[in-house]
Simulated assay, not measured.
Amino acid sequence: MPKYLRDVMALIHDEVVEKYFGCGLVVPGCLEDMKILDLGSGSGRDCYALSKLVGKDGFVTGVDMTDEQLDIANRHVDFHMKAFGFDKPNIKFVKGYVENLKDAGIADNSVDIIVSNCVMNLCKDKREVLSEAYRVLKEGGELHFSDMYADRVLSDEIRSNKILWGEGLSGALHWKQLFDLAKDVGFETPRTVTYSDLQVTKPELKKLVGDAKYAAVVYRLFKLPKGADRNASQVTYKGTIINNEDEINFDHNLTFKNGASMTVDGDTAAILKQSRFKENFMFQEAPSCAKYSEVKEENPFNLLKSGGAIN
């Protein structure tokens, strides 16, 4: 965790941290003044960290279905606003289901970024979660989330096991299913940010899952307007994103360094031009002889075999 995040986390109330259930910390870059939605916000740990990072003119909404967790999150709003030096709250927590954000009051095309931390695998209807995320995101918006995935389509026996469901193992998608669902809903090809092996070590669980293997992956999915320009471009990062002045990691294959020009494929160029990143880059037509990599579906288990974990 970089220093700026450690400094933010040190400001979070102890009860919020202690009562939080999640894996890692899902924090994309370029957050100032953004409107962010956290799916399955729990006690609010990630929401409060994000509320500090978006600043007083940004806003964070947490959605959770658990009254106890919402109570913890709501009673510490004033504490955090004082700790962050904000005059008024830039955060709220609402009760709702991530498969039905309309009932939680989340309007169409109203959110810049959606984050989620190991929640989708606990939802039976993944397509509806992705569809709702797509609906509420603005054009150019991003779904940035962590979850666990399986190396195969899990059997009905595994999927119906209550013990494995409680552990989050039976609800894991086969990694390829995520790419298919994202495409069907309308998102760009998911981009792999980090990946790591997820070992099932408890003997009783290992017996139940059999040969199935699991990986923890952070993906980012973008919603672009129809007909977006998709020409390859030469781009130069200006170094203007707070806390990422030297470089910004876009995915595990792509890092933009301050002042360095590089040619990117048409899909990546479209994302940079249409999203919150656009003011932080200079764009030129790509040289006709330029070489660049196309965005492809990536099997996280092959990535683990070839190079180990990237966190």
Results as ranks from 00 to 15, higher is better:
Leu5Pro: 11
Ala10His: 06
Leu11His: 00
Val16Glu: 13
Val17Ala: 13
Lys19Arg: 14
Tyr20Asp: 12
Tyr20Arg: 07
Tyr20His: 11
Cys30Phe: 07
Leu31Tyr: 08
Ser41Lys: 05
Gly42Ala: 05
Gly42Pro: 01
Arg45Lys: 15
Asp46Tyr: 10
Asp46Leu: 09
Leu50Gly: 07
Val54Tyr: 08
Gly55Leu: 09
Gly55Arg: 04
Gly58Phe: 01
Phe59Val: 08
Gly62Val: 07
Arg75Thr: 09
His76Ser: 05
His76Trp: 05
Phe79Ala: 06
His80Cys: 06
Asp87Phe: 06
Pro89Thr: 00
Asn90Thr: 02
Phe93Tyr: 13
Ala104Cys: 08
Asn109Met: 01
Ser110Arg: 04
Ile113Pro: 05
Cys118Gly: 07
Val119Gly: 12
Asp125Ser: 12
Arg127Tyr: 15
Val129Pro: 13
Val129Phe: 12
Glu139Phe: 14
Gly140His: 13
Leu143Asn: 08
Ser146Val: 09
Leu154Ala: 00
Glu157His: 05
Ile158Leu: 03
Ile158Val: 13
Arg159Gly: 09
Arg159Ile: 06
Asn161Leu: 05
Ile163Cys: 03
Gly171Trp: 00
Ala172Ile: 07
Leu173Met: 15
Leu178Ser: 06
Phe179Gln: 05
Leu181His: 02
Lys183Ile: 08
Lys183Thr: 11
Lys183Val: 06
Asp184Phe: 10
Glu188Pro: 04
Thr194Lys: 13
Val200Trp: 06
Thr201Ser: 04
Glu204Asp: 14
Leu205Gln: 08
Leu205Pro: 07
Lys207Asp: 06
Leu208Pro: 05
Ala215Val: 10
Arg220Asp: 15
Leu221Phe: 09
Leu224Cys: 02
Gly227Ala: 10
Arg230Ala: 08
Ala232Ile: 01
Gln234His: 12
Gln234Ile: 02
Lys238Ala: 01
Ile242Glu: 14
Asn243Trp: 06
Asp246Ser: 12
Glu247Gly: 02
Glu247Ala: 09
Glu247Phe: 04
Asp251Ile: 00
Ala260Asp: 09
Asp267Val: 09
Leu272Trp: 10
Leu272Lys: 04
Arg276Trp: 04
Arg276Gly: 13
Phe277Glu: 07
Glu279Asn: 11
Asn280Ala: 07
Ser288Asp: 12
Glu297Tyr: 00
Asn299Met: 00
Phe301Tyr: 15
Phe301Gly: 14
Gly307Ile: 04
Gly307His: 05
Gly308Ala: 00
